[in-house]
Amino acid sequence: MSGLNFPITTNRLVLRPFERSDVPLVARYHTLPSVQRYLARPTRYAEDVAGAVEVMRNQIGLQRPGDVLTLAMQRKGDQAVLGHVSLKWSDATAGQGELLFCIDPAHAGNGFLTESLTAMLNLSFDHFRIHRIFVRCDGRNHHSAKLMQKLGMRLEAHYREHALFQGEWDEELHFAILDREWQASSKVRPLPLRERVA
């Protein structure tokens, strides 16, 4: 899947691949304990950040199932790196993709993720022709859950104590949306909160 042009711009952000020079910007938030859950691999120490950026820097396309595309969320104007959004092509035969994201808590709550994830949903459905996009989040993270519902995603699963995460029982939500349910290149539509499936 080619023909993808970077950067992708939204209202207030530029979404672009990571660069080596991002390491100090990413280090600001990437080692915070509250952020670890949202990372592919924990980066608890400053010296882990360069490695994490190196991995993300190479996630620039989806050639085969399992591949990940990761883009830095950079604010226009002051050029601050606020976090990242990723699209993982999880299954080819059923056209499934997973969105993952991570934001510097200092910048959460300002709609930056809504903006970035909307762009990623457009990209997933319009460019990559994904059939269904899903997002997993911590059952206790009400901000994420609200964000998913705002994007029009449906709560499809609510697992309780189905796994251990860092030695504690985990609670996990799955949200999903099908290509036909997402209006191509739409702005974020305000939707009523959906009933929980479970």
């Binding site: 899903f134 499809e156 699963a157 697992y159 309780r160 799955h174 099908l178």
Partner: peptide, 18 residues
């Protein structure tokens, strides 16, 4: 038992959506 998940079209099953 409690219904914890209702997945729609998350996979293919016997030639159709699961």
């Amino acid at each position: 038992m409690r219904r914890e998940a209702h997945f729609r079209e998350h996979a293919r099953f016997k030639g159709g959506w699961d």
